[in-house]
Design a binder for these strands. Sequence first.
DNA 1: ACGGCGATGATCT
DNA 2: GATCATCGCCGTT
Length: 214
Amino acid sequence: MNGVNGGLLPRSFFDEPAVEVAPRLLGCVLRMFSSEGDVAVALSEVEAYAGESDPASHAYHGLTQRNAVMYGPPGHAYVYFTYGMHFCVNLVCSAEGTATAVLLRAGAIVAGTELARARRSVHGDFADRDLARGPARLCQALGIGRAHNGIDVCDPVQPLRIFAAPGPVGAVCAGPRVGVSSAATVPWRFWIEGDPTVSPYRAHTPRRANHSGR
DNA sequence: ACGGCGATGATCT
DNA sequence: GATCATCGCCGTT
């Protein structure tokens, strides 16, 4: 029963360009199995990144040490560290050698709410719907970090896995991606209409350099 | 509701 | 040395 009604997604699910895979990931459930307990998130918001042809992609300038996982086989997690404090997670799409991926931006906690709240409470007090509302928050709630970069989410032995949506999914909307400084108008962000866990839209805001010299 | 800004460090040119 | 696929806090409408 791979890929249907809550079963583990097969690798073939990811063996297509990210722009096609992204909307199909909505409603799917990403689950972290750990000794502390499990946390599961039903995805409500994702973004597609098209690789070397996409100015907003980490792979735009070609293969580097950081983005190497994106060039690998589909169905693996590309985890990166940014702004000196946050992790974000992508799922790699397309055949090996092609660097497309889907950024997981937000979701609803469907299991392990208490553990997710405990992990997030370090940074404040939150309503349930905010626990995985945003790509770095989603990683915090699930406990995703450096150690999970490259993990095969289609492998039943791994601690991080992804499952098909257990039931019907709401209407899908599309719009521009959040916080990107180039290709800012391409409608490659997908979300479930009306879902309260979808993160607020925010355009890229350039930062003024510090010239104080102190 | 919305806008500005600091935190904090890896990555790449 | 600049940039960054962010977040939380604080201030103003």
